[in-house]
Design a protein around this nucleic acid. Structure first.
Lengths: 342, 342
DNA sequence: GATATTTTTGTTATCGATAACATGGTGGAA
DNA sequence: TTCCACCATGTTATCGATAACAAAAATATC
């Protein structure tokens, strides 16, 4: 196509090739019913003319698109980037295109986005977490397209759900810490209401300690989840009286910030205080001592979800709920406490 | 809309309201030419019927979409997540939807993606970096839609370009290190060919040292840019003979890995060796000593690019090339060397 | 060589909206 | 009252493709 010329439409190609537009449509889509000779002639001509088919028109006629719309809370958290990475590969192999949105943990923003996306007749929709407005749930249920809820597993999924049992993960870590002999745990997270999954894990940890009549001190930093938030939260925690003997963090990033805060305060980890994170992010691989954390299978989760979606798009229904396994990594930022002297 | 019922079309709403479909179209789009009474009656009815307009049809009729397609090398690098974050806000205010792709630093993958995206008649396209295949450039030039090249500034942009002068940034850092008295610099990056921007910065650093007859040792780790790559690269660097007196890293993540490697090896930073990064990522805020680095304005870059795009979409042309400022942060992982004894 | 069958190609209706133009009603100026 | 302007609404053509059906050409069968 020469500069400034109007883009070629299917009709132009048809005329140039001396065939009907249906033949062009069939030839270029690889659909049966065109002789090899005509097909290659049309293909050459189309390439030469710089013909670009309009998906708008095509999708309208076919009443479907190959769009998969994905909403995640944030891209700043490597976790969601990894989940998306895992999904994308599988989806693109299946010829599906991805549209990504960040909701910033805001339900109403997510709801507005879902309404907009529905207007594109997407092949499927992916939401993170399982808390959605009533309207969103109703809209999606009636839209009759595959919907995947990720990261947490819904008790009653809109459609399908792949994720972790955050409460159980928290409980497992809590039980581990109890077992090590910690008695004054604190949890460092961000302002409540934003990250519900963090709260679930916290309640799991609290429950484990509670069953030994020990209570968990919650500490909320009013900031986005970040290294700094962990640093700040740890400082607050260390200033408490009595001081905690173990700090559980919302995730490894905060835990790293916490480690730095301890170092800055001259407090030795794990001798003086224990530190536990969540996720098993790659930063932990370069630390002088391995972080005590729960490793989550982000990429696998993405792949699993994508496979289920592809199947669903093709009309094959698989499981509705999949709970992914999490591995507790004992690490070296916690240790077996001597029997308390009190 | 009740479950299982066919989704309502504009025609159904029109019939229900006893008006023509044009009135419905006008009413719901907020276009002039409908009385307030009819408009609100139609709006209520549409909401009640769960009517969702088809953008496919709408965009086809209008011959444009509100889609902005963005390609970045990776989402694992916080830098691109921040640039996207900066763009997204401005774009969504302007009513533009974003489609994100990760090219994994692969030109041919980017090229294939551009071809696919063009078929959606997007409002604008955003590419990262400035190296594209000849076909991509031609296709985009002739497609006649706003195109933004980000992160690096192109000498001859396809259309518009906002980014850094990576070579100059490298030179500035190199000159700074020369000035501090370092004489045996090494650069730790990843396998060549993947991240061209890193290579530009390296050549800038090399140039600064070369003008004092000093040469830069390149060290390439065959891995994705990550904490581990920096750790590994630093280990390789430390094993060299003679050992470097300053390590420049591809970015702050690698630099952090390098810091950890030095700590693990019992090498004191900055007494025994200097460390310099790039970007000014937030991890540096929690380190015991500030990292010597060049701070880049990622969010601002995204915002700037988005503003230019929005203007272009509306037919207003602004600058073609914008070079964003970078601040050298001297930090505390490098120091003024005593005059060398040799 | 004539008919049955398959393959290739073309025609018409449709997807769900919007643009451009046409029409009918309302109110104010002359 | 009469005409004009303006606002609200409707009609027709169009956007660029695909589905479903119809016809023509090529091949197979007896």
């Amino acid at each position: 196509m020469s500069l400034g010329a109007k883009p070629a439409k299917i009709e132009d190609v048809a005329r140039a090739a001396g065939v009907s537009i249906m033949s062009v449509s069939r030839a270029l889509r690889g659909v049966d019913g065109v002789s090899d000779a005509t097909r290659s002639r049309i293909a050459d001509l189309a390439a030469e003319m710089g013909y670009v088919p309009s998906r708008l028109a095509g999708s309208l006629a076919q009443a479907t698109t190959n769009l998969v719309c994905i909403s995640v809370p944030t891209l700043f958290d490597a976790v969601f980037a990894e989940i998306i990475g895992g999904m994308r590969e599988t989806l693109s192999h299946a010829g599906l295109e991805t549209i990504i949105e960040t909701s910033d943990y805001d339900q109403s923003r997510e709801a507005a986005w879902v309404e907009r996306m529905i207007t594109w007749s997407p092949a499927a929709l992916v939401l993170s977490d399982v808390d959605h407005t009533r309207e969103t749930r109703d809209l999606l249920r009636s839209a009759n397209i595959p919907v995947m809820e990720l990261w947490d597993v819904a008790d009653d999924p809109i459609d399908m759900s792949v994720g972790l049992d955050h409460r159980a993960v928290g409980y497992e870590m809590g039980a581990h810490l109890v077992c090590l002999g910690y008695t004054r745990p604190a949890y460092v997270g961000i302002a409540p209401g934003r990250d519900r999954r963090s709260e679930k894990r916290m309640s799991g940890i609290a429950e484990a300690f509670a069953s030994h009549a020990l209570s968990l001190t919650p500490i909320h930093v009013d900031a986005a989840p970040s290294f700094e938030a962990g640093f700040e939260g740890a400082r607050v925690a260390l200033a408490q009286n009595p001081a905690p003997d173990v700090l559980c963090f919302l995730n490894d990033h905060l835990a790293f910030g916490g480690l730095m805060a301890c170092e800055a305060a001259g407090i030795n980890v794990p001798q003086d205080i224990g530190i536990a994170g969540f996720n098993g992010l790659n930063i932990t691989n370069v630390l002088p001592r391995r972080l005590t954390t729960s490793s989550t299978p982000r990429t696998l989760m993405g792949k699993t979800a994508a496979r289920m979606l592809v199947a669903a798009v093709r009309g094959v229904r698989t499981d509705r709920r999949v709970v992914m396994p999490v591995t507790l990594d004992p690490g070296a930022t916690t240790l077996h406490r001597p029997v308390p002297a009190d």
